[in-house]
Write a protein that binds this DNA or RNA. Structure first.
Length: 498
RNA sequence: GGGCCAGUAGCUCAGUUGGCAGAGCACCGGACUUUUAAUCCGGGUGUCGGAGGUUCGAUUCCUCCCUGGCCUACCA
């Protein structure tokens, strides 16, 4: 710690000692009952018509953090911030008495205080509380970031998110919106009769997606467990169980690189509904997203760094092969020689895993050449079977599955398919994946015998849908990095000697 | 993992073509009874990310390292 920082902290500690010696408790417990405490913005709304220089006669109690002090000798203006916003306090020596006036001004910005006083509007028109009594609720020992510029350093914002949220209204808004989106999703699903469930995060076999898992170890069971990469296989077991509409909204973990689009833990919604297919799920997704966005953004059309995004229905739909023709001018098919596909990949500097078949290569080319170009919400239908071991085959499109992804601003936002419920075929698909695993494809799906057993009891035809919540929030808030929408994104540990 | 960029006071940032490190806010002291980025007077508080190297002298140049950002790769 630098001496300047130590000095600022020591000054506050010294104040703390003085406060104690004045007989003031620096960490009071209860200030008032929660029903009595009013919010800054609510008072501002309620007294919007109060004229400048007029007292309302109404007394109010508020609690918040002292954010600014403007002293004028025998009067002073203080701003406090509560969870809803800020409000000005007026402190006057003639109202408080000399001793109280002095001790109120002795407090620092950052301190939490509770106050009681009359709601007034100042001569300059600011709704204020004329403080009659006050109480220190918590002494702050560290200086706040700058009042005007706030906390800008990206690293500091993430490492000390509490400071970012405390001083940057914009950050607070992002997370309030995130919360509103999640709440709205729950309301939507609950209103449609879905059951919210919780399935294991610690899984013996990490399945349901193609990703590297985190491994951990259970001492008593003497076994490795994996942090789930997806809840999919457990949710499908619940369809076997007879629940016809379930969802889980929770964290997944993938042991991969960190980027503006990837955090090792991220939030995913997975929804399963019996007796529907992927085309139904596309309509369902449209309804879900448009309901949520119009609720939290007030519109389906909004500005984003990549341009105006319109979620007005219907969204564009095209197959992966159509998209390749449209965006990359490539006419690809599974009938082509694999050599030819590999050539096309190579020309476009796309690396192909040695175990990749035609479907994989096509999907890879699509991801690299097409996805980044898609800005408006677009449903890409029919993903290759090779990369979709859990999806039902598309009878009209051999080699492809009944699967779609929603792409917006170059990112996969949602992924859905008609779930494969034929246990024999599922076993074959798993075996094919196991072959790939042997060839060094670490991400190939492992065989989950217990899941196969469940399927053998019979899972009804089911539509499944996964939505990347972080990415949805990014789009709704215009954030270009996933770190901006995750409160505490994963960072390297700070080292003492650096 | 690779490339580029950045790290200077609590915060936001200047700056040194190698010669005592500087501004605003914050903070400390003083004045001030209606301000709201209050104002006025006075005060600069620093491991210039870390460790080496070159040099009479390094915050500046070089090497390595740490952390972060952007791009890229990985994430089918």
């Amino acid at each position: 710690m630098s001496s300047r920082e130590a000095e600022l902290i020591n000054a506050r500690r010294e104040k703390l000692n003085q406060i104690v010696s004045m007989g003031i408790k620096p960490y009071a417990s209860v200030f008032a009952s929660p029903e009595e405490i009013e919010y800054s913005t609510e008072l501002q709304r309620a007294y919007a018509s109060l004229e400048p220089g007029v007292s309302s006669g109404k007394r109010a109690k508020l609690a918040g953090r002292l954010m600014a002090k403007r002293e004028h000798g025998k009067a002073a203006f203080l701003d406090i911030q509560d969870s809803k916003g800020r409000i000005q306090l007026i402190a006057r020596e003639d109202v408080l008495g000399e001793a109280d006036y002095e001790s109120l001004l002795f407090f620092d910005t950052g301190d939490w205080i509770g106050i009681e006083g009359e709601v007034v509007r100042s001569r300059r028109g600011e709704l204020s509380i004329l403080v009659e009594s006050f109480q220190l609720l918590c002494k702050s020992l560290r200086p706040l970031p700058e009042k005007w510029h706030g906390l800008k350093s990206v690293e500091a914002k993430m490492r000390r998110r509490y400071l970012d949220l405390l001083v940057n209204t914009g950050s607070r808004k992002v997370f309030e919106k995130r919360s509103a989106i999640i709440k709205c999703i729950r309301e939507f699903l609950d209103s449609k009769g879905f059951l919210e469930v919780e399935t294991p995060i610690l899984q013996p076999i990490p399945g349901g997606a193609a990703a590297k898992p985190f491994v951990t170890y259970h001492n008593a069971l003497n076994m490795d467990l994996y942090l789930r990469i997806a809840p999919e296989l457990y949710l499908k077991r619940l369809l076997v169980a007879g629940f016809d509409k379930v969802y889980e909204l929770s964290r997944n973990f993938r042991n991969e690189g960190i980027s503006t689009k990837h955090n090792p833990e991220f939030t995913m919604l997975e929804v399963y509904q019996a007796f529907v297919d992927y085309r139904y799920m596309a309509l369902f997704l449209e309804e879900l997203i448009t309901t949520v966005l119009s609720e939290v953004n007030g519109a389906l059309r909004f500005e984003h760094p990549r341009g105006t995004i319109s979620f007005e229905r219907p969204w564009r739909r095209m197959t992966m092969l159509e998209a390749l023709r449209l965006y990359a001018d490539l006419d690809l098919s599974l009938e082509m020689e694999i050599k030819k596909l590999k050539e096309i990949a190579e020309i476009n500097e796309i690396e192909i895993h040695p175990s990749a078949g035609k479907g994989w290569i096509i999907a890879e080319i699509f991801e690299k050449l097409v996805e980044p170009k898609i800005v408006q919400p677009t449903i890409i239908l029919d993903y290759p079977e090779e990369i979709s071991p859990l999806a039902r085959k598309n009878p009209d499109n051999p080699g492809f599955t009944e699967r779609f992804e929603l792409i917006v601003v170059g990112q996969e936002i949602a992924n859905a398919f008609s779930e494969l419920n034929d246990p024999l075929e599922q076993r074959e698909r798993f075996v094919a994946q196991a072959e790939k695993r042997k060839k060094g494809d670490e991400l190939a799906h492992p065989i989950d015998e217990d899941f196969l057993t469940a399927l053998e009891y019979g899972m009804p035809p089911t539509g499944g849908l996964g939505v990347g919540i972080d990415r949805l929030v990014m789009i709704a808030t215009g954030c270009t990095s996933i770190r901006e929408v995750i409160l505490f994104p994963q960072l390297r540990q700070e080292r003492e000697d650096s």
